[in-house]
Amino acid sequence: MVWTNAVVQGLLLGGLYALFSVGLSLMFGVMRFVNLAHGDFSVLAAYAAYVLVEHAGGTPLWTFAAVVPMAAVVGFFLQHFILDRALGAGELSPLLVTFGLSIFIESALQQGFGANNDSLFLGPLSYQSWKITNTLYLGRLEVIVFVVAVALISGLQLFLSRTQPGRLLRATADNPRAAALSGVNPRRVRALATAIALATVAVGGLFLAMRTSFTPTSGSNDLIFAFEAVIIGGLGSLWGTLLGGLILGVAQTVGSQINPADGILAGHLVFLAVLAYRPQGILAARNAAL
């Protein structure tokens, strides 16, 4: 029964990891680089919410309405003023710039907030749970987070496959030159991708801050988990990313069940095993870039 519990909790956690990955794979699809500051933006969003609640009060839930649009705007300007320039400066530049940005954000947060653990406390919602059987309890917050995460991912997949901006994103991911030749404005598409990426990672950051806790440097782990979910699931569709997130989440919770200190290690090992035996990922789509 403990194992069922571990698997269920892992699935709930994995939905959240998938939400972190969506933006990473979207940006990679359009621009062919991984934003190494991706995780740090989720932590930045969490601190923004923390500050807002401290000053304006109320439940942290309302901060979604403020922080998520803010993150999208930050994403737009980040792309416009920094990443576009880095893309033009050579193949390795976007990696180096975003790594520098990551160090900058982490140390600035450390300077501003100290190295403590912080958390967004939601009152009773933080600990209430539904009883399924005598040994299986589902935390309400965990279930809500999972449902919202999966809904967001599904919505984004629908957006990509059914709407005009989504088609432009996919076209650019498939073949940026051909897309530009047929009239797509590549700068606008890139800014859109980064805005969506930062908005989704901000939602993920707030959820994670509500579920557990965050520190100025926890963005590194968020990035690594997001990356592992993408690779485990396989590039190609957001469903693959969702599956990768779920597998990673289950690996971590089952690992901690075996030995409490080994959860993260178990996740890494599953990732390395996928890398060794199925490097294209579990659900890799043929010829698809997004």
Binding site: I82, R85, V97, G100, L101, S107
Partner: peptide
Amino acid sequence: GAVAVAVTL
């Protein structure tokens, strides 16, 4: 971090 970003760009 800031210098790394600036130098790259």
